[in-house]
Structures are given as structure tokens and as C-alpha cells.
């Protein structure tokens, strides 16, 4: 438990990071990069997914309506992955990796599933991985429908007093709390 920061310190640092982002570039967001990565893979298989288009605002266009929206801004990011938001997410993963190495990493049991899952649903990795796969699908479909996730809507949105941020947070907790109360009755 020693490595977990008290909420006051943790909140102060988290707030400082979100402030640093808006001070220097733009608010933090993550879920868009799942689309960009999908686009990169798709474009590798089918080069016609993102094409140069001098008429588009971004200079790129796509036959996919989602990549093509807002003047092809997602198509542009797929064509140029070395952009701020994509590198940000890669660096975020590197930062978490470094932190976990410095605190000695995880136990083999914890790597497979968290203790609270084990207490409620048993030791089967297949069950846990299947649940995580389906949950990931629902989370990213929902995030893209909403136009942001916990970082972009909940944290960045509410810190800027964005109406959309409050609406998103209300939806997330209205669904998340009853789901967790129903599924996880044993603590660990």
C-alpha cells in the first residue's frame, strides 16, 4: 500500500498534470487514439482508407465517414501518427511502466486479474479475459459515441466547466455504480 499516494497528494499531482496540459498545448484526451490506431492498422491493410486530398481542410480524406469528419482531422492523424495526442498516449504508457518498475512490479496473481474479481468470480483467467474484452468493446464504443472518455470528458471537461463533461460523468456513474454494486458484493 505504501506506494499509493494519499488522495490529497495524488489529487494535487493529477490536477497539476491536467493544468500543465491546458497551459502548454490542449486538454488531455485518450479515447480518440484507439480510433487513430485502428486507422493506422486499417490503412496498412488497405492504403485507400486515408488519401491525400488538397480540397479537405486537413489535406487528407477517407471513404470512412468517421475518419473523414471535421475536414478529415482523424484521417490526418492516421497519416501522421507522430502527432501530439498519439505520442502523448505512448508516453503515458511509458510513464506508468516506469512507475510500476520503480515499485517492484506486480505479483503473478495480480497480473492476471485484480483480487476483487477473484473474490467474486473465482480464479478462471478465461472468464476474466472474456469479460475484459467485452467491457473494452462497450467502453470504447460508448466513449466514441460520447466524443470522449474519463480523461477527455470527465476530467478535462468538468475542469473547464463544460456542460458535456457533467452530462458524461452523470451517465458514467449512474450506470457504473449500480453495475459494480450488483457484480462485486465481496470485497476481496
Amino acid at each position: 500500500m505504501s506506494y499509493i499516494l494519499p488522495w490529497r497528494t495524488g489529487g494535487l499531482l493529477l490536477g497539476a498534470v491536467f493544468f500543465a496540459a491546458v497551459l502548454s498545448v490542449s486538454p488531455i484526451g485518450v479515447s480518440t487514439q484507439f480510433v487513430i490506431f485502428d486507422g493506422i492498422l486499417w490503412d496498412a491493410v488497405d492504403p485507400d482508407v486515408v488519401v491525400d486530398s488538397p480540397d479537405a481542410k486537413s489535406g487528407y480524406s477517407s471513404p470512412n465517414a468517421y475518419l473523414n469528419k471535421s475536414g478529415g482531422s482523424y484521417a490526418e492523424d492516421v497519416a501522421n501518427p507522430l502527432n501530439y495526442s498519439f505520442v502523448f498516449v505512448l508516453a503515458m504508457m511509458a510513464g506508468a511502466f516506469l512507475s510500476s518498475r520503480l515499485r517492484g512490479g506486480l505479483s503473478p496473481n495480480e497480473r492476471v486479474m485484480p483480487a476483487v474479481w477473484r473474490a467474486n468470480f473465482g480464479d478462471s483467467p478465461v472468464k476474466r479475459y472474456a469479460a475484459a474484452l467485452i467491457a473494452g468493446f462497450v467502453v470504447l464504443y460508448g466513449s466514441r459515441l460520447a466524443g470522449g472518455c474519463t480523461s477527455g470528458h470527465m476530467m478535462s471537461g468538468m475542469m473547464q466547466t463544460a456542460l458535456s463533461g457533467y452530462i458524461f460523468a452523470a451517465g458514467a456513474f449512474l450506470a457504473g455504480i449500480p453495475t459494480a454494486l450488483a457484480l462485486f458484493r465481496k470485497e476481496s
Binding site: P27, G142, A146, S151, A162, I167, A169, A175
Partner: peptide, 30 residues
């Protein structure tokens, strides 16, 4: 640098979907 996202009904529906998956997996995208 201020960047506000649009509010629409899908924000709420998407929030509900994220909430369910967030609770099942214990993960959000980040």
C-alpha cells in the same frame, strides 16, 4: 487552449455505456 466538447444526447448514452464497462473491467481507456 480552452477546448470544450459538444453536448448531445449521445454524450449521456455513451457515458452510460462507458459506466457499465468501467464497472465490469475496472478499466477506462486511459
Amino acid at each position: 487552449h480552452v477546448s470544450i466538447k459538444a453536448a448531445y444526447l449521445g454524450v449521456f448514452i455513451g457515458g452510460l455505456l462507458l459506466g457499465v464497462g468501467f464497472a465490469v473491467a475496472g478499466y477506462c481507456p486511459g
